[in-house]
Simulated scan of single mutants.
Amino acid sequence: MKFKEFEPGQVIHHGPVTVDEADMLAFARAYDPQWFHVDAERARDGRWGGLIASGWMTCGLAMRMACEAVLHDSESFGSPGLERLRWMFPVRAGDRLRLEATIDSSRVSSTRSDLGIVRWTWCLFNQDDAQVLEVEVTSLFDLGAA
């Protein structure tokens, strides 16, 4: 999508993406090796009743879906950060996650006419419509790009 296509209130959908157990374990072993992400036996007896994906992997899946649905052919060049990151429900191997991204605001910078700013909220839901992630993201767009 191009910057000029963003409208406040617009909802962008993408997915589902299926969470693969091998990917889930590989991510956790490399980046978040807490026992409930990597030790199936111990996790089975833990609070979650089995392995759950790292929340950081869930963020990565949301990013992938946002790129595929919106950012891949846009003028986006980065982000100054995010707000209100929340993981509400555990993600497990085999879950099918879908993205609902709502455009909260879209504007040209008041100090740089070549800079577009989009604030949007990404929500991920599993196959049972349980919300597993919410994050408010700011994306920057180069309006001087060809």
Rank of each mutant, 00 (worst) to 15 (best):
R92C: 09
I52V: 15
L140I: 06
F141Q: 01
C67S: 10
L25T: 00
V70R: 01
Q10F: 08
A30Q: 15
E75C: 07
W48L: 11
E75N: 08
V70C: 15
L85Q: 05
T138Q: 12
E75L: 08
I52C: 06
G78T: 12
V137T: 08
T111Q: 10
D23F: 07
A69W: 09
D128K: 12
P16W: 07
F89C: 09
G50W: 11
R96H: 12
C67E: 09
G15P: 01
A43M: 10
Q10L: 14
S110H: 09
I117K: 08
M63E: 12
D20K: 10
G49P: 03
M24F: 06
W120K: 02
G9T: 07
D23L: 13
S113E: 14
H37G: 04
P33R: 09
T111I: 06
V118F: 08
M1V: 11
D39A: 09
D104T: 11
T102F: 01
R42K: 15
T102N: 02
G116L: 07
A43S: 12
A130T: 09
D104K: 13
D95E: 08
A30W: 07
V108W: 03
E100S: 13
S79V: 08
R47K: 11
L133C: 03
W120Q: 05
G144R: 09
R107H: 11
D45F: 11
D23P: 01
G9R: 06
G60N: 04
